[in-house]
Design a protein around this nucleic acid. Sequence first.
RNA 1: GCCCGAGUGGCGGAAUUGGUAGACGCAGCGGACUCAAAAUCCGCCGCCCUUAAAAGCGUGUCGGUUCGACUCCGACCUCGGGCACCA
Length: 875
Amino acid sequence: MDEIYDPAAVEAAAQQHWRALDAYRSKEHDPRFPKGKFYVCSMLPYPSGKLHMGHMRNYTLNDVVYRFMRSSGYNVMTPMGWDAFGLPAENAAIDKRIAPAKWTRANIADMKAQFAPMGFAFDWSREIATCDPSYYRWNQWLFLKMLKGGIAYRKTQIVNWDPVDNTVLANEQVVDGRGWRSGVPVEKREIPGYYLAITRYAEELLQQVKNDLEGWPAQVRTMQENWIGRSEGCEIHFPYAPDTREVVESDGALKVFTTRADTVFGATFMAIAAEHPIALAAGRLNPRLSAFIDECRHGAVMEADLATQEKKGMATGLHVLHPFTGKPIEVWVANYVLMGYGEGAVMGVPAHDERDFEFAHKNRLPIVGVVKSKTGAYDQVREPWIAPYSEYGITVNSGEFSGLEFQAAVDAIAAALQSRGLGCKRIQYRLRDWGISRQRYWGTPIPIIHCEVCGAVPVPEEDLPVVLPEDLVPDGTGNPLNKDERFLACTCPVCGKPARRETDTMDTFVDSSWYYMRYCCPDAPVMVDERTDYWMPVDQYIGGIEHAVLHLLYARFWTKVMRDLGLVKVNEPFKQLFTQGMLLAHCYYREDTNGKKRWFYPAEIEQQFDERGTPISAVAREDGKPVSYGGIEKMSKSKNNVVEPGAFIERFGADTARAFVMFAGPPDQSAPWSDASAKGVHQFLKRLWSFCYDHRERITSAPALVAASLGGGLKKVRHELHTCLQQALFDYQRTHYNTVVSATMKMLIALESAKGQPEAAPLLREGVSILLRTLYPIAPHVTHVLWVQLGYARELGDLLDAPLPAPAQDALRQDELELVVQVNGKLRGRVTVPAGANEDAIKAAALADEHVRKFVDKPIRKVIYVPGKLINIVV
RNA sequence: GCCCGAGUGGCGGAAUUGGUAGACGCAGCGGACUCAAAAUCCGCCGCCCUUAAAAGCGUGUCGGUUCGACUCCGACCUCGGGCACCA
């Protein structure tokens, strides 16, 4: 055994040992693990080329779960793969003139190499890259199944359009309402695309996230519930007035959905989206309105932009009729109403809706109060707006429906609407169908052929996969597939005439919606096979909180579609979910003359902080001139604020890196990266090594521990050890790994306090064996080597599968307890009592304490005793 | 704008969920060892008033519930994540 801890040598030896065992290859029904399977999976990384500390934290968590569950006796499987399609590869292509396929595969090789020194327990035999045809052919295959089942369908979608580069922009490529490369304001444009009908599953997705997913964090469940957004309300039809009938050249009615049917008599205007057929028809006759509709087309499609923009509207001059009074109501075009949501129209009730109130006020529209406050907050609505106006109350000025409470009014109005054929009760969801078409090259080709005669025809199953050519280089002016004759040219599978291939590719969320099922059977000649039935559901899924809604909702939906097609048996893919917080880092940029931002890597920057650690300024190393501060954000390639683990591992070793990212803070919380305190963790591992080295002979030759014969001092040390163990096991199970590291540090402190006593050897032997096994999932290399060197492996087997230590009840028991004495809730003293003392004796002891007596200067009203904790005397 | 989180010493954080606020570590200060430095080891370390002890004040802000609040309730401030084409 070496005297000095040498992480590089230790880690090489441990990894060699695991390689020789092929330790992480997992198989179904492995008889070595009678407790059954445990599938732990981390969200697969995008191969950006740089493995950063955020990845490290994520996959260390994954590895700790793997090792802890394997120590607990489970057949654990943990795979790894690559979310290999997507925008960054196209951006790299534009920048570096290199084909996305080449760039992506080189990055995968780089990142895999960067994983190696960390000692992660991945079963690499299950590796997947989503850009491989052997994977994405099943995206295409399932898409065709969905098309057949009506889950996939075609309709128009609204996208960000860059009028200079003539290309569709992703939301990320829109910066302050302008195209990121051209710098010109973006416009909305309608184009056709494919949708998946996730809304058909809205109710099941909602019910299960509410009631079944108990292993998920409450905040994620709430976010999904709110995202699905079920609301019960009424559909109301406002028949076209003669002027509208004339302009749109048809009979009909404007349909709206409302949760406040009780306020229908207060509707004083209707607001419709700029793309609504009535708006378009009215615009053809009215140049000013047409200009306004045009103006609404400016700007991006992001909800955050729409919600914060100034609310604007213009009258169409056309009318619809109130379903009960028959009075005409003017129709307005409003920029805050969206065609994609509901019916693209809302009824404006300014008296009882704050947004409608503002709109009416600004446009001098009438405000008619039709609800009276139940609590007496108001009788009549008048300016300014107060919150109670939107509360439920009693209907007034509502004809035959006056004098009703909210629910009674809604019921009566809905019934009346239904009998006239002008509406009904309806449940509406905020959730919208999932648009999967992307006008981009680097993704799964949508398996459709466009024929002039037969229209959009699905590619026959036997012709799958539709292979993406890998040698194209995008240049920022649209999808290069559109110019690639080899890809475009094909024949119609129905009529045999020459046809064109669809060039849109699928959203990359499709790739990540089912990869965790393919890991179970990566070589299957079908989408999934019986091995998937063995491993699914994922027992522990781990990933960033930023995926709380979209990815996790799509994956749940996709699983249900596969279930309904008989491909899998589970209803839900992820039994337990752990959402780890992100590592954040300061970011810095400079703007060029076009307003385009260049983001600096940390290594390119010299930072200055004030004494509180707040960044005050920074300069670029290249020219010594200041750069702008972009705040503290999640580590990501797009902001270049990534910290790579290479140098850290070289300096301290992988075990320090692993233990430090776990020790740095609670794993479910985001934290800014700093390695300032990494030294402490490294010193701990060094001290642990030295301790084992110094006492190696006592430990290996110690007789078995006889608890009853321990002296008072050693008994206390053993109590401390087992208390720490109990806490660590509890914290493992609730994923508080930061305090597991603390617990192992305390164990070492306890052992160090006992080492001087000659009769301590059996306790050292027990203590070190507990410490090593407790620390092992977090720092597996150093604990493995010490485990072998100190002879524990001969007795308890390889540390990979050695049983978890269990706290000894006799060690946890104490002869005496120290209790806190409070007077009126303030700490005033302490008393030490025998463990079995009764309540009256304890109270008497507390009152006898002289510090306590000083504060008991009034009659005692009450004495509260919390067993084992404290006594509170209320005077 | 809407939805979801977080805010505790100089810093990262702990407090088994209403019962001793500051565990464990970093930084800092003092000491031992050393010719010296590094490494290592020992001690101190929320604020305030003090020679000391004791008291008082302290968990973003303001208010409430309770014998007792970092923890529960209400309002607000700041920061982070998401908002459907970044992944």
